[in-house]
Amino acid sequence: MTTVMLVDDSATMLMSLKSILTKAGYAVETAGHGKEALDKLGKGVKPNLIISDVNMPQMDGITFAREARKAPGMRFTPILMLTTESEQTKRAEAKAAGATGWLVKPVGPDQLLGVIKQVLPGA
């Protein structure tokens, strides 16, 4: 089963996205911030896709994306940034950090699942 890791400090976002993804047939791992997500990767969690918020406590999403790329087996795993942030400079930072794409909140279920199918064609 395809596993998606959700990283967001908003419990509402985690619940909403988890509900949508679970219903679509994905297994879901959640983390409340970048550091927690990085710890999970370090403990052997191997998601097929990561969807991360940008502005989070302890470790922001862009730093997390940069660090996640260094984790074993995560070099080519798609990382989507899902955030309210819309500035181009932040997008450029995310891209440089190794993010695969940028989604501005709120994102509808159909849009989200459509993007996932784009970055995970076989899933």
Partner: peptide, 20 residues
């Protein structure tokens, strides 16, 4: 109905936006 509820779950993201 399930399609509508999924859409509604998506719309609840407003809370995160309004929170920020």
């Amino acid at each position: 109905l399930t399609s509508e509820t999924t859409g509604a779950v998506g719309h609840v993201q407003f809370q995160d936006i309004s929170r920020q």
